[in-house]
């Protein structure tokens, strides 16, 4: 990818020789992997619900599976975004729904009970991964620092706030192209208006 994008650079522009560590952490990468997985699974559920219901002995539930597919795609998009924390926790919620739905199909009279068992185990494994990812991302991106530093001593005015107030009015003229429309300035004292537009 880097060599392709180098086409857009000039000869003198720096090119990457060796890459360093990424700002993405391990949990961010896990979130991305789960996000793409979510989109893949969601597409499968959306496009091939009949095969899925047949494999699980859940014929007649195709619309439900399609709905779950849309939901999975939503989780995926959110997990791939900067709001990945919300995405992963929404996946955990979705996992609970999937487990409940599969459990309802894990009946002795279901001829595909074995497949449902495998699916339950798989979803349980994914749920574990989702939990690890959600907790990891929450912890990695948690706002830290508390209230101990408020920077209330950082005015930025070395001569003090009182001297700073209006100090630039003494020697600065607002350029004509940036003056307010007359309606906005009409109520200002005429002297000040004249000073700012001179």
């Amino acid at each position: 990818m880097l060599s392709i994008s180098n086409i857009a650079r000039s000869e003198g522009d720096p090119k990457v020789l060796r890459s360093g560590p990424s700002s993405r952490g391990g949990t961010d990468e896990l979130a991305r992997a789960l996000g793409w997985f979510s989109i893949g699974l969601g597409l499968a559920e959306l496009l091939a619900p009949r095969q899925i219901t047949r494999a699980l002995g859940m014929e007649g539930k195709e619309m439900l599976v399609r709905g779950y597919g849309l939901r999975e795609i939503g989780h995926g998009i959110l997990s791939l975004s900067p709001d990945k924390k919300a995405g992963l926790w929404s996946r955990v919620g979705g996992d609970a729904l999937d487990l409940a739905t599969l459990a309802s199909a894990y009946r002795p009279d279901n001829p595909k009970r074995g497949n449902v068992g495998i699916a339950l185990a798989a979803v349980a494994g994914i749920t574990l991964l989702d939990l690890v990812g959600a907790q990891g991302v929450t912890s990695r991106h948690r706002r830290t620092g508390g209230d101990h530093r408020r920077y209330r001593d950082r005015s930025g005015f070395p001569q003090g706030l009182q001297r700073a107030r209006g100090a630039a009015r003494q020697d600065f003229r607002v350029p004509p192209d940036m003056q307010a429309a007359p309606t906005a300035a009409a109520l200002s004292p005429s002297g000040d208006r004249a000073a700012s537009t001179a």
Binding site: L17, D28, P82
Partner: peptide, 8 residues
């Protein structure tokens, strides 16, 4: 979200 300190 992928910034790296690279040798270039």
């Amino acid at each position: 979200e992928d910034i790296r300190c690279d040798s270039v």
